[in-house]
Each structure stands twice: as structure tokens, then as C-alpha cells.
């Protein structure tokens, strides 16, 4: 039976690329704003479009926050992409009044010498992120204005833009990636295939 992947629909992004890619990879994927459906999912994805404050407001008001925490509490996997990765942490200086989900330590701060990190960049993954060697040092698409600041022990991938910073963070079955695998063409598709298989089967 196909594994099911729920993609959270905050109401202001388009999910067609991520849904399309997931279906191509053989998953039963759907986007929804109904938090009750989290219970039916094998894996939940927090996608990556929008601003931190608006997304957290949605997660709180729609009850996704508590449903997602229950989901990971049951040992089920959660993947955050770009903004979704930021939501996994304690917060972001993009909106100081909004707290993150707090599932991972650390927070997001603006770049000191750039106003954004946009484009294709090479990611070096740590061995703690159990993925194929062929995906290491590939180029993935980034588009973000804030970077991760937190403990090194949860950093699973690094990227360099001026300084080096986290391209992936996580522990156990909660993983966040700063880049957009669904918008990173062939290499992104291979990354998604690899990471989702590992997260669901681990």
C-alpha cells in the first residue's frame, strides 16, 4: 500500500510542485488545511512558501501545532522545507512576536551581509543524515532571508554563502531542509526520494 504524505496548506502557497513530485515518487500525497487529517498521514511536510509570522498564526489557529506535536510524539516523521524548517525551531527574528513549534532548538536570524540567499548552491551533508553519497555536494535551490542559529549537533548539512550555515537540521524523525528539493530538478527529486524513504522506514 502506498504511504501517505500530508502537505500542510497554510492557504497562501501553491503545493502543486511538491504534490506532483511526491506522487511521481509513488506516495499518496495531498495538501490540506484540515489539521484533523494529520492523524491519517505516515509523514507530514511543512512546505516552504510565505512569511514566518503568517505561517505560525495559521498553524496555531488551525490546530495544526498540536496535531503535529502529537504526530511526532507518536514517532511519525516530519519534514520542514525552507520556511517549514524555520517553523520547526523556537522562532525567527522575521517575526519576534510569533513562537515557532519548538520541536528543534535554535532560531532564525537575518543574514548579516546579504539580504537573501537565492539560487543554486552546493550542500555538504553530514553522515548523520543517512542519505546516498551521490546526493552529497549536489546543487539545490535556496530562497530565504534568514539563517539557522543553534547547536551544531543538530546540523545535518552545510552550505556556504559568505559564511557557512545550516542547510539541513534535525534529529530522529524531525528534519528540516533550508533548500527546496521540489524545485531542485533531478537532484532535488533524488534527494526527496532518498530522505522520505529513510524517514518513513526508519
Amino acid at each position: 500500500m502506498k504511504k501517505s504524505v500530508l502537505v500542510v496548506d497554510y492557504g497562501f502557497g501553491n503545493l502543486s510542485s511538491i504534490i506532483y513530485r511526491l506522487e511521481k515518487l509513488g506516495y499518496k500525497a495531498w495538501g490540506t488545511s484540515n489539521s484533523k487529517l494529520v492523524a491519517n498521514a505516515d509523514l507530514v511536510i511543512l512546505p516552504g512558501v510565505g512569511a514566518f509570522g503568517a505561517a505560525m498564526d495559521f498553524l496555531e489557529q488551525s490546530n495544526f501545532s498540536s496535531q503535529i506535536k502529537e504526530h511526532v510524539g507518536n514517532g511519525k516523521p516530519l519534514l520542514g522545507i525552507c520556511l517549514g524548517m524555520q517553523l520547526l525551531t523556537k522562532g525567527s527574528l522575521e517575526c519576534v512576536s510569533a513562537r515557532g513549534l519548538g520541536l528543534l532548538p535554535g532560531k532564525f536570524v537575518p543574514f548579516s551581509c546579504h539580504n537573501a540567499h537565492t539560487g543554486w548552491n552546493t550542500v555538504t551533508f553530514s553522515k548523520d543524515l543517512d542519505i546516498s553519497d551521490s546526493l552529497n555536494s549536489c546543487e539545490y535551490y535556496f530562497n530565504h532571508s534568514f539563517r539557522y542559529k543553534g547547536p551544531d549537533k543538530i546540523k545535518l548539512g552545510q552550505v556556504k554563502h559568505g559564511n557557512q550555515f545550516a542547510a539541513a537540521i534535525g534529529r530522529k524523525k524531525i528534519i528540516g531542509v533550508q533548500f527546496h528539493p521540489e524545485k531542485s530538478q533531478q537532484d532535488g527529486a533524488k534527494f526527496l526520494q532518498n530522505i522520505l524513504k529513510n524517514m518513513i522506514n526508519a
Binding site: 510565505g50 512569511a51 537573501a116 540567499h117 530565504h144
Partner: peptide, 9 residues
């Protein structure tokens, strides 16, 4: 608009 979709967009 940046408050809704982010400056990077």
C-alpha cells in the same frame, strides 16, 4: 507584501 510572502519572494 513582504510581511505576507517574505522579502526573498
Amino acid at each position: 507584501l513582504s510581511l505576507k510572502i517574505g522579502q526573498q519572494a
